Simulated assay, not measured.
Amino acid sequence: MEKEQDIKYFTQIPAWVDELDNISDFQARLIGYIYTFENITGTVFTSNQRLAKRFHKSSKTVQTALSDLYNKGIVHSTLVYKEDSKLVDKRYLEVVKPTGIPTPENEGTLYPKTSIPYPQKRAYPTPENGVDNKSINKSINRLNNNNVHFEEIWSLYPKKSGKKVAEREFNKAIKNGVNPDDIKNKILEYNKQIEAKQTPKQFIKQGSTWFNQSCWEDEYDLTPINGNAKEPMKNGGYGTR
C-alpha cells in the first residue's frame, strides 16, 4: 500500500502565484506544496489530515482553503475509487495556472513532470494519453456513489433531522477529501458518548447541525458518568457492560 506523501525540506511556489490577488498566504503555500510534488513525482495524493499536520492547521481549515481553490480553478481534484468498490481510494490534486497569467522567463521546474498524471495498478496499463478512463468515469459518478455512502451513514445517526442539509455537507466533505469511513466512525463514537454521558434527547445535535459543523473532526469523551457504560449491540441498540 502506498504511503502518504510528504515534503520534508522545501517547497517551490510558482512565480505566477504572486500575480493572484484573491488567495491567502496559506493557500499560496498549499499551491507550492502541491506544485512541488507534481514536479518531483508527477502525482499528488496527500490527504487533508496530512496537510493539516504539515502546516499546523485544522483539517477543516485545509478543507476550506482547498475548496476555495477548487472553485477558483487553481487546484483540480480527482477522486479514484477502489477496484470494484464505491469507497474512495485516493484523491489526486493538480495545480492549474489560471489563463491570462504570464509565465516569468525564469520560472522552471526542479524536475521534469512525468507524462503519466496518475499511477496505475499493474493489472491496468496506462493508456497512451496517460489518462485512466476508468478512474475518470468513476469520478464523474462520484455523487451517486456518495449518496450510497450517505444513506448507510445517515442510518447510524441518532437524531435524523435536516437530512438534505446533512447530505449536502457530506458530499462537500467527500469531494474535499474526507474519508467516509472517518465520518462513519465518528458517528459511532458520538453514539457511544451519548450513551456514556446519558445525554438527554433534546441535547443531541440534529443531523444537519452535526454535518454542517464537520463534527467528524471532534474528539468524543466516552468515559461513563456513573460507571455503567453501555456498548452498542448488533441490532443497533445498547446493552449494559
Rank of each mutant, 00 (worst) to 15 (best):
D218C: 13
T103W: 03
P180M: 05
P127E: 10
L79G: 12
P232N: 02
I101D: 00
P232G: 05
K134M: 10
Y190R: 00
S67H: 13
T223I: 14
G227V: 05
F211Q: 11
C215G: 06
K8G: 01
N129Y: 03
S67C: 10
A173R: 09
E38G: 13
Y92S: 11
I187Y: 08
I101H: 06
K8E: 00
N185L: 06
E231I: 14
T46F: 05
N145H: 05
A15E: 12
P200C: 12
Q63D: 13
V96I: 15
T109P: 00
Y9I: 10
V75N: 08
K159I: 02
Q206Y: 12
Q12D: 09
R122Q: 13
D68P: 01
P14Y: 03
D68Y: 03
D218I: 06
Y9M: 03
S115F: 07
S208W: 01
G227Q: 05
F203L: 09
H76L: 07
G177M: 14
P104G: 05
K234I: 14
A166G: 07
P102N: 07
M233K: 13
K138M: 12
Q49M: 09
P14I: 00
K60E: 14
F10N: 00
F45C: 10
N146C: 09
Q120K: 13
E152R: 15
S24L: 07
K3P: 00
P127R: 04
S139A: 07
K53R: 15
F211V: 10
K163F: 01
A65R: 12
D132T: 06
R29D: 14
E128A: 11
P117N: 11
R29Q: 13
K57C: 10
